[in-house]
Design a protein around this nucleic acid. Sequence first.
DNA 1: TGATTATATGAACATACGTTCAAATCAAGG
DNA 2: CCTTGATTTGAACGTATGTTCATATAATCA
Lengths: 195, 195
Amino acid sequence: MARTAGSHSDITGPKVRDTALRLFARHGYAAVSMRKIAGEVGVQVGALYNYTSDKQTLLFSLLKGHMDELLAQRAAHATATTPMARLEEFVRFHIAFHLDRPEAVFISYMELRNLEPANFDEIEALRRTYEDELETILRDGTAAAEFAVPDTRLATFAVIAMLTGVNTWYRAGGRLSSADVQDIYWNMVRRAVAA
Amino acid sequence: MARTAGSHSDITGPKVRDTALRLFARHGYAAVSMRKIAGEVGVQVGALYNYTSDKQTLLFSLLKGHMDELLAQRAAHATATTPMARLEEFVRFHIAFHLDRPEAVFISYMELRNLEPANFDEIEALRRTYEDELETILRDGTAAAEFAVPDTRLATFAVIAMLTGVNTWYRAGGRLSSADVQDIYWNMVRRAVAA
DNA sequence: TGATTATATGAACATACGTTCAAATCAAGG
DNA sequence: CCTTGATTTGAACGTATGTTCATATAATCA
């Protein structure tokens, strides 16, 4: 017996995960059937259930994996000390990370509403943790008079929306590199919040 | 015979449209069945087809109506002359308009991928028209040395993403009014682009 | 090789989908 | 009141959905 156990211990086959990620991003969770995923993997639909307990768990697992990696990589890259340097680091990290995995980013806010409540709450808590890192930077910088931000919570939302928006237009291989985009956006963010 | 004619002339019943808008925004186009819409309207599913030729046309009609109103209202509110004043006017208009109809805004970029190609192209053209208005302002201001924007196309995307992001957190009746939000965001936008 | 375990198949299940249409109901005017 | 036309019903259509499971195949290791 190899059927996957409870939802906490799915070790979904990577090919199933990759295929589901791509199809969910392209057509949306509700519009992609388990049979479509199986077809792209090259397998009959029943075989998918050796790798996930159900479709909802597959979606949740993709979003959870994405958020876990976001927080892990962010922790690994946070080394600066002054608010200004920390903000620049955050901006560059956010753009680089998000441009590297557009599909995971896309479904991670597009398919949130298709999560069952408990799963939704778990993903939202992780997102909140990430946003709080930026807010802390903005608050520290404001306290140190490096930034002039009247409302740190709003500024956090504004900066994150602006940065994540890059994914709506950026295409790898286009006129600009990730580093180019980072330079331009960092310039705008800095001027928007600097004292 | 009263069945709706071709998709160009649907005069969908307002209650059907309102219900569909709300359900599509809450659960997503693919997850909402015609039977669910009918149930909320208080009618059997067959009756819906007196008001729309099919489900896809219903979605398209909602998005088209939203974009048409966006462009019409924008045209009615564009009166300023200097780049700085025009930018402020655009920022305040965008926030006010979007905060007023969060559900229409939500489905208008969330359900784009569920449009058939021809319908998608039509909505995208309207969106592009709107974005071009902002880009023109940024270019004029840069030429007049009022703004310092290295890449007007990127700055356009950045500003629009930042402004539209308001809809992800704003809730009517909360701590801030639409005017408060406009003040705070205009302050950030101005500093991000000003020379 | 033979036994054991891990995967894959193919068919079935109950349910849901978008759409159509004859028949029933309703609204308005003469 | 009766006719005419607009609207709604209720049932049916073919197809698709997520999930299960006995059976068959493939891989692993003694």
